[in-house]
Simulated assay, not measured.
Amino acid sequence: MKTVTEGAKGYRRLIPSMTALVEFEAVARLGSFTVAANELGVTQAAVSRQVKFLEEALGVRLFHRLHRAIKLTSEGEALYLVVAESMQRIAGAFDRISGGSEDQELVLGTTAAFSHFRVLPQLPALKRMQPRLKLRLTTLMFTADLRHNEVDIAVRYGSGKWQDGKSSLLFNEEVFPVCSPAWLLANGSPQSLMDIAKASLIESDSTSEGWMDWEEWFQAVGVQPPRLNFALRCSLYTDAIQAAIQGQGIALGWHRLLHDLLKAGELVRLTDTSVKVSDAYFAVIPHGRAVTPITASMIDWLRGEVGTS
């Protein structure tokens, strides 16, 4: 049976330098030797030496050195995932033991639509639940690399399988046409999906986030109209929904985002037909970030308040 001292010697033999691992994690997370050096308060040359030492000790390259960028190799990616998760656990333990500070700041990264429709309306409830929380909202695309963004939690829509963080399911999603009560009163209820295709449609630009547009929605429900009647096209989904509220036409409604507007009657659902998408919303903790009690509580809040059906 190994003694504690023998076990410690074993760790030191297998792990040549904890400093090198810390500096490697910073470079991998930030994607830059220079930025990592600034964060760590050391020189770029010192960081480069530590990473080179780690590569020599392991006998593999951890980064591809490109012309003006670096990229993790497959071995580097495997090491980064383990190191980042381990550092996250250590940071979480420190936070639990120390009890945290009196005021706790949390940086939440979401798209503009998610924060506008789902987070901001629920802030009073969050404040009652977490009076010490200092929330900072930052706008991110769902595809933003979390290693290059200073966030504690990111909300993403997709498969839940990402290399830059650990994801937790928030809720699934379905999509259906919505309009304002005033538009419905003025134009009457469509009798078929083909009638909806002929009505005044509001479109928002397709993005890299995986959201469907009107053409994809009709394909998913098995309808192939000869043409779609677009009354308005918007770059932002928030603008498309605002236009629908003002009675400009019919927009595609993402149920989880528009729950409060539907419940309040500012928007109405036009048909029972909907598309239940295969992707879902996830809370993602970037590798290297601690899962603190306040972080876990925030994820529960997102899942409960924002996920209300």
Rank of each mutant, 00 (worst) to 15 (best):
V155M: 00
V47G: 00
R118F: 04
L135T: 03
N187S: 01
M129L: 13
Q248W: 07
A199V: 09
N187F: 00
H148T: 12
G265C: 03
A45T: 12
A154W: 04
K198L: 06
F171K: 09
M18G: 10
G249E: 08
A28M: 00
M18T: 01
R147Y: 05
S297V: 07
D260A: 04
A220N: 10
N172C: 07
L257R: 04
F218W: 11
I294N: 05
T207S: 10
G100Q: 15
V60E: 05
F33I: 01
A231Y: 09
T139P: 04
R89N: 04
N187H: 13
S206L: 07
F94K: 02
V51C: 04
L140Q: 04
W217T: 10
F218N: 09
R65L: 15
E203G: 05
T308G: 07
F282H: 11
R65Y: 14
T43E: 00
P286K: 05
R96S: 12
A244P: 03
L140A: 08
S167H: 14
G210N: 01
K9W: 09
E102N: 09
Q219H: 15
L193A: 09
A197H: 02
G165R: 14
I241H: 02
I285H: 14
N172A: 14
L79P: 06
K71N: 10
A296F: 03
E77T: 06
V223D: 11
S159E: 14
V47C: 00
T73V: 08
R49K: 15
R118I: 08
G41S: 06
F63N: 01
E174P: 00
L185D: 12
T308S: 12
K198W: 05
G7C: 03
A264P: 07
P226C: 05
C179Y: 02
V51R: 03
L185Y: 09
L30I: 00
L21S: 03
G99M: 13
Q104F: 12
T19E: 05
V119N: 04
Q219Y: 15
K166L: 13
I202V: 12
D103V: 15
S98T: 15
W254R: 11
S278E: 14
A280W: 14
V221S: 11
R65C: 08
S235V: 03
F114V: 00
F230Q: 03
L169I: 03
L185V: 06
H287T: 02
M141P: 14
F63K: 07
L146S: 03
S204F: 10
Q88P: 05
V291Q: 13
H287K: 09
V119S: 04
L120F: 04
Q50Y: 13
V51S: 04
V223M: 11
K134F: 05
H255S: 12
T273R: 13
V35L: 02
R65A: 13
C179M: 04
E203S: 08
L270F: 08
I97T: 11
R128M: 01
